[in-house]
Write a protein that binds this DNA or RNA. Structure first.
Lengths: 171, 171
DNA sequence: TGGTTTGTTCAAACAAAAATGAACATTTGA
DNA sequence: TCAAATGTTCATTTTTGTTTGAACAAACCA
């Protein structure tokens, strides 16, 4: 299943390397580790699904990295197991292919990486608001309450923006 | 100018600490260094503008960190110099206060941290598209062109989403 | 001038995050 | 049952990114 048709499988050619590095930069912007970009990038320009060992060989990363990277990509919904319509053989290796619907990618990222932070932020602000009750100076208290209200506002705006994002990016 | 009215200026009290840590987490999500969050956070809950030395004292960070952090925050438009309406004295220290219009903050972040990456991404894709001209196997070439077209699509979507973001977050 | 205050720069030290790889499951089939 | 193949986990190492602090500039003024 692994790309025997297209030249030396150990060689990641120039174009492939550049695509991989494109994705490495891309995921870095999103705060994800380089290996995530490498794996997704290689899957993205591969015509056939790849196994964990393929990734290890062609990207020259460790099995551990590949395994963890795939785990995260799966949890983000960015990678799926290929429906192994293999020849008759007893194939127990699993092969992976990239999810490519932008909507899905964005949805996964928002759901796993963004929303949790927004939510924990909201509860932190709630906790902080409780603390201002003990502030003696009334002027200081008013100031703090005003600022915390603003923070709350910001998080609300953030919450409102996510669905719009998903909508627009779903084409 | 620095907060003499509100208790021991060296002591960052519990509430202040929590707000600072709130912002530290916040900027980490955006991929910015902790000191940025500390500085902005302290300015955010301070009733009066603060000088570089105030930040050094109260956050217990180095002068270098404070200077670099302020530099970045200024470049993002997240911090501005306070209009020093000081008493008569010869005051040559500059004081800083946080910019708090969400629109401005988001605009700065997008302009300095997001847009440049989108733009460099676009030119990288253009470069890659040139490379596929040399791919011999026509099936492979078609495949690559299709994928690159999709990447281009993604970046376009990204570009389209930014103005909408700014609009929504501008209240 | 030369001393003082304020702020910046950047090599080196340090800390945080990611990658490695060896040990450990788990499944299969001989 | 054992050996082989596949994949995961996690303590250690490596890499990357951030902070420090001392040296340097610039502005002010005595």
């Amino acid at each position: 299943m692994a790309d025997q048709l297209h030249g030396d499988p150990d060689k990641v050619d120039t174009l492939e390397k550049q695509v991989v590095s494109f994705f490495v930069d891309g995921v870095k912007v999103l705060g994800l580790p380089r290996s995530i970009g490498e794996i997704y990038g290689l899957l993205f320009i591969s015509q056939s699904a790849l196994s964990l060992d393929d990734l290890v060989e062609r990207l020259k990363i460790s099995k551990g990295s590949a395994s963890q990277g795939l785990k995260m990509l799966k949890s983000l919904g960015a990678v799926r197991e290929a429906s192994s319509s293999t020849d008759g053989g007893a194939e127990r290796r699993t092969y992976y292919e990239p999810a490519m619907e932008l909507k899905r990618l964005v949805g996964g990222f928002i759901g796993k990486q963004v929303r949790p932070h927004l939510d924990s932020g909201k509860s932190k602000i709630k906790a902080l608001s409780a603390l201002t009750l003990e502030v003696e100076d009334p002027e200081r208290k008013a100031f703090l309450d005003e600022r915390l209200a603003r923070l709350d506002q910001w998080l609300r705006s953030g919450g409102r923006v996510l669905p719009v994002l998903q909508k627009i990016l779903g084409q």
